[in-house]
Write a protein that binds this DNA or RNA. Structure first.
Lengths: 117, 117
DNA sequence: TTCGTATTTCAATAGTCATTGAACGATGAA
DNA sequence: TTCATCGTTCAATGACTATTGAAATACGAA
């Protein structure tokens, strides 16, 4: 996976509504579901949903097929797997024994004005 | 993991420089590396790096500790694992047999003006 | 063809984000 | 204390993003 591709996937998921949409499609499985069902389930106005689905599709996270008047969207699991592989590439210099040597934490999550000595 | 948390993590990674920084820290392993080394390795001006590291830290993706004049940043692997778990939650209604029934694709990656019947 | 439904496209608005250099703060050594 | 180094904060700029409703397009049924 190329960096640009990874950024596109992450950006596509980095938004509340789109994350909801994607997870709903992950739950639905490979059969997918019509855009209208997604809109109903998540109470999204059609134009907003269409905008978000287009971004997910452009990023390669969902596929579309038409069934009559409905467009059926489905999650592309391969894309997510490839992303995870990209993120963990060369983890710990490929030396797994380095991956859990110590439990360290020095501020991690909370925002602080200054890092103490 | 809460949705807001997942969005924060994804947004933190959805940017070229930050993705580079995080992957470099993943490669470095739990010992981490000083901000200055990251700046040198990725040729980032200090203020930009500081901005990006702060976003990664706020999202919970990296931890910091001080060692003399240096601030040492390390990837927080737990955060990434939790994110992946969140993304795949309830996958295929928790019925794994649904996860790979058919290979479907109807436009997936390329942008098209119209979805054909 | 005409109608109704499903979904997308358009245009305008407001909000958020990345980037830069200069100034500031914190630390360790002389 | 004074100095040099490491890193962060500040302010200004330009670029991108989400959201809305209205209008347009695609399809199926009558």
């Amino acid at each position: 996976m190329k960096k640009q591709n990874a950024v596109a996937i992450l950006a596509a998921l980095a938004q509340g509504s789109r994350l909801d949409v994607f997870r709903l499609l992950v739950e639905a499985g490979p059969e997918g579901m019509p855009a209208g069902h997604v809109a109903t389930a998540l109470r999204l106005p059609p134009s907003a949903l269409s905008f978000h689905l287009d971004r997910l599709r452009t990023a390669g996270l969902v596929s579309v097929r038409r069934d009559g008047r409905s467009l059926i969207y489905a999650a592309r699991f391969e894309a997510m797997n490839a992303l995870v592989a990209y993120l963990t590439d060369h983890c710990c210099q490929n030396r797994p024994e380095l991956c859990k040597p110590k439990v360290r934490s020095a501020g991690g999550r909370k925002r602080e004005a200054r890092i103490p000595a």
